[in-house]
Each structure stands twice: as structure tokens, then as C-alpha cells.
Design a protein around this nucleic acid. Structure first.
Lengths: 155, 155
DNA sequence: GTCAATGCAAACTCTTTGCAATCTG
DNA sequence: CAGATTGCAAAGAGTTTGCATTGAC
């Protein structure tokens, strides 16, 4: 699952370009933090990234890691898993259903679709583990955030 | 999005049955906490549930809400959004891809499937907001957790 | 040289835990 | 009535912030 060398280099190229375009400084720490995320096969948390980076840059601090990661998210160079992950949220709906997730505010709404309930999972996935259920996550902008965005633009 | 009265009653029935089957006591607090989650149209967090319950049971404490919610998750009466939500995790992969999520340990692995990249979202979803992308989340048991489960069973 | 970025430490938020008092079955 | 459950308060994670120092452009 670890990305190939050329894929890693491609990501690093986009990273440098992204920083430059945003007029943001390319520091040693930022490069190493990005290298750590981009080179990871799984989806590491801040602490894990911190530990990895610290082996190469012993003076790096955890808050810089956090600041950098959120900067990268803002610049669209990486993303976070799930919603703009805040806190644990609970779902009382135990029937098969799917989610519409607003990428701005994190609001998640259920919807039903029988076709989605029985998607055929590609073969390669069987190698990853035992499949129990599939759920489709539709990402987008909810109505409220759309209206908010409109009103800002029209100003 | 708020569940209809009969759906709510159905959920409460299952809740009482679930508690009894698990040999767990049905307390006033548990009932009201469940009623609050089950009656919510969105996916509330613990704090929101707490505020709602407190209007009816002013002495309820936030820790009881947490304990009850996790109990309900353990009993399979509700679920949590996303992974067994721990901390923020980052994803360097900005190409269209899908996730295999282990419901036990939370490990999330990428996989690619062009069919999944262009799923037709049902019409009802357009009412919820503007769709940007769809991502399939396949839930199951990863290999490591499967092996672990096997070794426990065979003891 | 200037201003953004870092490291430190301290604050903050969300969540969990230990324990005596309380309530359910 | 016994043992699970609660409420309180305090601790514990994970994450964020203010500020003086450092370093990129």
C-alpha cells in the first residue's frame, strides 16, 4: 500500500507547486511533514506523522505538525478521512442507508437507494479483508452552505 | 429528516428488547438518551444529546450520556458515523478512490474502482445539496482482525 | 531585512474514569 | 436487597493558541 517512488515524487512536486501558488513558504519542516504523509500507505494521525518526522528533524514540534497538516488541507493538497472530523457523532439508523456529507459544515444526511445497498465490490478488495457492508458517501455542499457561499459571492 | 412517530416507536421497541436481551437495566436516563438519539434527524454528538435530554431529565450528567451511547453502540442498537472515530486522520491521495474500513480497528485502506467513481446518485439526493463526488465505503473486517478473531474462537 | 513560520508552554475541548450514593429488577 | 447504574469531580487524551525567536524569500 506504500506509494511507489515515482508517485511519491509526483505528490511532492504538486506539494511544492501548491505552496508556491499560495505564496506560502517552503520550510524544511513542511517538506518533511508532507513527505511523511505522502509516503504513508495508511492514513496516519498527527501523532504518527510527528513521530516519523522527528526521526529526521528532531526539533520539530507537534503543533507545527498540526498547523502544517491543516494548512495542507486548506490548500487542497491532502484531505482528512471522513467529515472535517470534529467529534463522535451517533447514528440511530440501523437499516441499510447512505450518507450525503457536506464537506464544509460536516452535516450528514441519510438517504436510501437499493442499488447502492448491493454494489458489487471489485475482486481486489477481497484481499483486504472480509466485506460486511458497503455504504456510499456522497460528498458535496449542503443547501445551507450553498446559500451561504452564494451570499458571500454576490457581495 | 426527523423520523415519523411509528418509526420512532419501532426503534424504542428494539431498544427495550435489546437491553433486556443483554441483561442490562432499563433506567430512566437510558430511555431518554435513546429517545433523544432515535428522534434526531441528523447525527447528533454527545453534547447535543446531553442538552436535549437535560431538558427532560435536568440531573442527567454528560458522562452518563457518553457511557450510555457507547453501551448502545456495543449492543448494536446505534452506530457511530465514520470509523470507531478516534482522532483526525489524513489522506494524501487526492485521486478518486474508495475506502475499505475495518469496523474493529478502524484501519482504512484505499482501493480503486472506476465504476464506483461514477455512480449515478438518485434524484432525491439533489434536494439535499450540490453533489461533488461519491466515495464508496466498504465496511468489514481487515485481515489482521480476522486472524485475531479466529485465534480467539479456536481457544 | 521583513514578515511568515517555528518551538515552547500553557490553554482548551472532548471524553473517560474512580468512587460513594442511588435506583432497578 | 444485591449489584448495576448514576452523578460528581477530577484526570486524560488530542488539539489549538499566544508569544518570543528563528529562518525563508
Amino acid at each position: 500500500m506504500v506509494p511507489a517512488r515515482d508517485q511519491l515524487n509526483e505528490r511532492i512536486g504538486k506539494f511544492k507547486e501548491g505552496l508556491k501558488r499560495a505564496g506560502v513558504k517552503l520550510t524544511h519542516q513542511r517538506l518533511e511533514i508532507f513527505r511523511e504523509v505522502a509516503g504513508a500507505g495508511d492514513h496516519p494521525d498527527a501523532e504518527t506523522i510527528f513521530r516519523g518526522v522527528r526521526e529526521r528533524v528532531p526539533t520539530v514540534s507537534l503543533d507545527t505538525v498540526y498547523r502544517t497538516l491543516w494548512l495542507l488541507v486548506d490548500l487542497g493538497l491532502i484531505s482528512t478521512l471522513g467529515t472535517p472530523q470534529d467529534r463522535v457523532r451517533f447514528d440511530p439508523n440501523m437499516k441499510p442507508h447512505h450518507h450525503f456529507v457536506c464537506t464544509v459544515c460536516g452535516t450528514t444526511m441519510d438517504f436510501y437507494c437499493e442499488d447502492f445497498d448491493r454494489l458489487k465490490v471489485p475482486e481486489q478488495v477481497s484481499g483486504l479483508g472480509m466485506v460486511r457492508a458497503t455504504q456510499v458517501e456522497v460528498k458535496g455542499l449542503c443547501r445551507r452552505c450553498m446559500e451561504k457561499a452564494d451570499s458571500i459571492e454576490s457581495k
